[in-house]
Design a protein around this nucleic acid. Structure first.
Length: 438
DNA sequence: TCTGGGGTCCTAGGACCC
DNA sequence: TCTGGGGTCCTAGGACCC
């Protein structure tokens, strides 16, 4: 047994839990959080799960039944979730070293202690997050990331674990029989729908059976990833740490894409949307101090439409020099689709992808390499945004605002729908909660 | 009427070079 | 006319994750 275990902390029903933090009246009730455009269910409270609502269900197909069951629905409020996530991660980083924020609601940590001491620290950490942010987390402690995922899963499903399960504290028999034999193959980290189907075809149904396969043989038949998963299930760490200290820095690509509130017909509307999303992507590029060398844009019609045939196109522009200039990038995005779209197709999505990312710092020292960097326009936009709020200025449609609660978006007809948005309590002065002491 | 968004890694195959 | 073998780089696409 390895004595420096990996700790995985993962929030329970994160988005749904966030909605209850500043609205305690919804706690204990069935609540679902919907994706952008109020499309699909992406997070559910325990009570909503108990009603049999599955993740990914299109909201319009269950809306009436949900109303009957008094289910509360919320549009996704990423501003709130992001803010609570940062608080939660910050609290946890004070308890154990080597935090890797893996997603908005979970992080790995590397404990220098043995399993038992790690468990005691994790219990204190868990209470600190609950008290400091109001979000319940579950914790798995194990020698590898894949096993930490499995023990975390176990902790979530077994109330007797009080939110924490430690692999090293289980007997060898329990590890195999109670835990690995009860985990279905699709619940193993790294095994998706397709792979699970192929494995079941070979009679491999539970995690324990996968662990007992020959790794070399499975690598030949499937992939190097599957070999790693098998070794991880045996307690041999093979999944590299993503210890990029800059936090959230993207190495390969930055993508910004959205479904529209209403479909777009014709090139001009798509060009407007592409230009707006290019500016969002550009802001993220600048925040991580990168430049990009290629701007790609894709757009697609609805894959569900009964009237139109599905159609998708993409175009891409290679920049002359690496750049983070929103003028250059948004203009490339406008050009990328030129002449490619079909005028009669109703497009419902557009996305802008920035690739070929390079570190801006390497061009600071070698100006002769010729990067086209932003001359200060973005900084001016940021200053205006800080003083007057988001979306007051921008290039083209990005400078146009919608009305009311959605005024962070452009006022275009295709802007997303968010009809059930909760307050952005921690990021907007005018939406701060009011507390009365009677 | 109404079906999310943002990533990573790996592999195959083509282009190109010597 | 004939037309190998090995390497690298890039891109597209598939599969997976939350």
């Amino acid at each position: 047994m390895q004595e420096h275990p990996i700790v995985l902390a993962d929030a329970n029903n994160f988005y749904a839990s966030c909605e209850a933090v500043f609205h305690p009246e919804v706690a204990g009730k069935p609540l679902v959080v919907l994706s952008n455009n109020d499309g699909c269910v992406v997070s559910r409270s325990y009570e909503a799960k108990a009603l049999g609502i599955a993740n990914g269900t299109p909201w319009f197909t269950i809306r009436q039944e949900a109303a009957y069951d008094q289910v509360i629905a919320r549009s996704s409020n990423y501003e709130l979730y992001g803010s609570l996530s940062r608080r939660m991660m910050s609290i946890m980083s004070g308890f154990l070293p080597g935090q890797e924020v893996y997603s908005i609601d979970e992080c790995f940590m590397h404990s220098p202690w043995d399993s038992e001491r790690t468990r005691r620290i994790a219990a204190v950490m868990r209470r600190a997050v609950l008290q400091g942010v109001g979000i319940p987390v579950s914790i798995g402690i194990a020698p590898t990331k894949t096993l930490a995922k499995i023990t975390n899963h176990w902790a979530k499903r077994h109330p007797s674990s009080h939110g924490i399960t430690t692999w090293g504290n289980l007997s060898r028999d329990d590890q195999g029989t109670a835990v690995l034999s009860s985990i279905e193959i699709d619940d193993v980290w790294g095994i998706g729908r397709r792979l699970a189907k192929r494995l079941r075809g070979l009679g491999i149904r539970q995690a324990a059976q996968l662990r007992d396969q020959d790794p070399v043989n499975m690598r030949r038949r499937f992939s190097v990833q599957l070999e790693r998963t098998i070794l991880e299930l045996r307690g041999i760490p093979c999944i590299a740490d993503d210890n990029d200290a800059t936090g959230g820095k993207r190495d390969c690509q930055i993508l910004c894409s959205r479904m529209f509130g209403t479909p777009i017909l014709g090139e001009e509307g798509l060009r407007q949307a592409a230009s707006v999303y290019a500016q969002y992507a550009c802001r993220r590029l600048q925040r991580q101090h990168s430049l990009c060398t290629r701007v790609s844009v894709f757009c697609a019609s609805s894959p569900f439409s009964k009237h139109d045939q599905y159609s998708s196109v993409c175009g891409s522009i290679l920049l002359q020099d690496p750049s983070d200039d929103p003028v250059i990038i948004s203009s490339a995005a406008r050009q990328a689709l030129h002449g490619r779209i079909t005028p009669s197709v109703r497009y419902v999505r557009v996305g802008v992808m920035l690739t070929g990312l390079v570190d801006a710092a390497s061009y600071d020292t070698l100006p002769a390499l010729g990067a086209q960097t932003d001359s200060g326009l973005s900084e001016a936009f940021e200053q205006v945004a800080r003083r007057f709020g988001p979306a007051h200025v921008g290039i083209g449609f990005a400078g146009i605002r919608g009305d009311g609660r959605n005024n962070g978006d452009t006022g275009a007809a295709w802007a997303m729908r968010r009809e059930m948005l909760s307050s952005r309590c921690t990021t907007r002065w005018d939406e701060m909660p009011v507390v009365r002491a009677d």
